[in-house]
Nucleic acid binder design. Structure first.
Length: 572
RNA sequence: UGGGGAAUAGUGUAAUGGUAGCACGACUGACUCUGGAUCAGUUAGUCAAGGUUCGAAUCCUUGUUCCCCAGCCA
């Protein structure tokens, strides 16, 4: 047995669960839940919570419920419910029959409110929102009791019933818990339980005109579902005493709330409010813009669920409120895509290359490996002819130090094809290079020289006559700085938006094997990065998103050379 | 200046009184028909000061810094 192998480290929540199982709490049962409010799209931060909650249930043979926390009809919509379900499934999790809605419990919640009134623990308050705020006190000063705090049980019962009947306008009354207006925890200063909202709910329609607050709904919903471990983020830590108070006063099943640090990522924002702002202000195309940290954006960008899950596993779970490097997410993505993405050749910024000694009308098919990481992926034929496109970046008329690619007089390998030597450079009237000429060595067919000579560089290409013209969208970080919220006074996070986060290339060419590639399919464009077919694609006008670039050590060298330019060169 | 939390390499996370480890990043080098991948190596840390102890990241004391809370949002 592997009894003495080092156990993988447990995070603090797993430690709590294992301790509970050891003492036989809940008979060792584990039930968690993922409780989104359907008021926006899910993002990578939610993915952390989803992986945590569903992962714990899987690990300990328990269940994880999907519960929509839909207690505020003003902000919530069916569209969001649909997108959330799609995203959770896409991430690879299954809640089975355990799909619930806080709104399913409205009747029970109402009965519990009545129970609290009867016990003298809740009262109807006629203070306006502003007066309520004034009575609440401040962080350092205790609050004052509401003048309605001492109403009789009978009057409270009557008023609450009439609130439900719709006798009173929005905001005119609330139901409040009677706890302690002097508590240092503001959540315990007679929190509002119900507010009047004559709004139609996306599920209950017009059945209700009073709606429970989060605090009154969440814990009790957990209790109804017999959730054992109710995992939420740090900002709810202050709410735990209230969570426990309801459970205790009502005498119902008591789940345990545990708080962990939400995910933060460099070079992006994560709050729903800011994401919504980006969408509404049209800084991005929509919730699923490939630059967004939303699940739908990442999906469209070409991320895999596996990569996201692995990322969530690696960031860990703790109570430290820190920031994760987006480079880790990208690492997990490359790691996954490297194993599974078929390789193809695509030229993003084309430069014509003509092989002068290659027969004018000849075309031949060369064999290319589909995935060097996966022998079972096989090979494919790539057409080759006299006129090719190569990458503009792969040619320099005046090559810098350590540049291994094509330059006048230099010989390089065309991937899977031949060695070619540059013999001439053609420019237009403006001095722009428009075409280069080469000779090829027929003996190097396939890419190996029988005489054993080596070349420093191998570049990719497409045959001009056979290539498909496509649009390519290159993405960069949405923000130019690691922490977009770090702004000067008077500015907001949008001042850190990266103006170059999207670059569209409309003059790119890919090898013909890509014709008809389905939206969502992923490829590695050799030497560039991973790309996927965008849903905007049509048969005649394919669109590729760059999911993530390959690591580029030449770019680093070049950047280093820029940092310390050659002496003798002057800049005007 | 009330209350609740948190501090371990650049970043994230382990070590639960007994050798401070892992991952990402950065930097070397090897290899290579992708300047990819892979492999090898280097770099770098216990917030501070006291105390307890044979021994402290861990326990105690004091301090520092950061996060959260004054919605009829969640």
């Amino acid at each position: 047995m592997a009894e003495n192998e080092a156990k993988p480290a447990l995070n603090f929540i797993e430690q709590i669960i294992e301790a509970d199982r050891k003492t036989g709490k809940h008979d060792g049962r584990v039930a968690t839940r993922f409780p989104p409010e359907p008021n926006g799209y899910l993002h990578i931060g939610h993915a952390k919570s989803i992986c945590l909650n569903f992962g714990l249930a899987q690990k300990y043979g328990g269940v994880c419920h999907l519960r929509f926390d839909d207690t505020n009809p003003i902000k919530e919509e069916q569209e969001y419910i649909d997108s959330i379900k799609t995203d959770v499934r896409w991430l690879g999790f299954d809640w089975g029959r355990h799909e619930y809605y806080a709104s399913d419990y409205f009747e029970q919640l109402h009965a519990w409110a009545v129970q609290l009134i009867q016990a003298g623990k809740a009262y109807v308050c006629d203070l306006t929102a502003e007066q309520t705020r004034e009575h609440r006190g401040t962080l350092t000063k205790p609050g004052k009791d509401s003048p309605y705090r001492t109403r009789s049980v009978e009057e409270n019962l009557d008023l609450f019933a009439r609130m439900r009947q719709g006798e009173f306008p929005d905001g005119s009354r609330t139901l409040r818990a009677k706890i302690d207006m002097a508590s240092p925890n503001l959540n315990l200063r007679d929190p509002v339980l119900y507010r009047i909202l004559h709004a139609s709910h996306h599920r209950t329609g017009d059945a209700w005109c009073i709606y429970p607050m989060y605090d009154f709904a969440h814990g009790q919903s957990d209790s109804v579902e017999r959730i054992t471990h109710s995992i939420c983020t740090l900002e709810f830590e202050n709410h735990r005493p209230l969570y426990d108070w309801f459970v205790r006063e009502l005498g119902i099943f008591a789940p345990r709330q545990i708080e962990f640090a939400r995910l933060n990522l460099t070079y992006t924002v994560m709050s729903k409010r800011k994401l919504l702002n980006l969408v509404q202000a049209r800084h991005v195309r929509g919730w699923d813009d490939p630059r967004m940290p939303t699940i739908s954006g990442l999906r469209r960008r070409g991320y895999t669920p596996e990569a996201i899950r692995e990322f969530c596993r690696r960031v860990g779970v703790a109570k430290f409120d820190g920031v994760n490097d987006i480079a880790l997410l990208e690492h997990c993505l490359r790691e996954d895509l490297n194993k599974r993405a078929p390789r193809v050749m695509g030229v993003l910024r084309p430069l014509r290359l003509i092989i002068d000694n290659y027969p004018v009308d000849q075309t031949e098919e060369l064999t290319a490996i589909n995935n060097p990481e996966d022998a079972s992926a096989g090979t494919r034929a790539v057409p080759f002819s006299r006129m090719l496109y190569i990458e503009q970046d792969d040619f320099r008329e005046d090559p810098p130090r350590k540049f291994f690619r094509l330059a006048p007089g230099r010989e390089v390998r065309l991937r899977y094809a031949y060695f070619v030597t540059c013999t001439d450079v053609i420019k237009d009237g403006n001095g722009e290079i428009i075409e280069i000429h080469c000779t090829y060595d027929p003996a190097t067919r396939g890419g190996d020289a029988p005489d054993g000579r080596k070349v420093k560089g191998t570049i990719h290409w497409v045959s001009a006559a056979h290539a498909r013209r496509v649009e390519v969208r290159l993405y960069d970080h949405l923000f130019t700085v690691p922490n977009p919220d770090d702004v000067e006074n008077g500015k907001d996070f949008t001042s850190n938006l990266n103006p170059n986060s999207l670059e569209k290339l409309t003059e790119s060419f890919v090898e013909p094997s890509l014709a008809g590639a389905a939206p969502g399919s992923r490829y590695q464009f050799e030497r560039h990065g991973y790309f996927c077919v965008d849903p905007d694609s049509t048969v005649d006008a394919p669109v590729f998103n760059r999911t993530v670039s390959l690591r580029d050590s030449w770019a680093k060298i070049e950047k280093g050379q820029e940092a310390k330019p050659n002496q003798g060169e002057t800049t005007l």
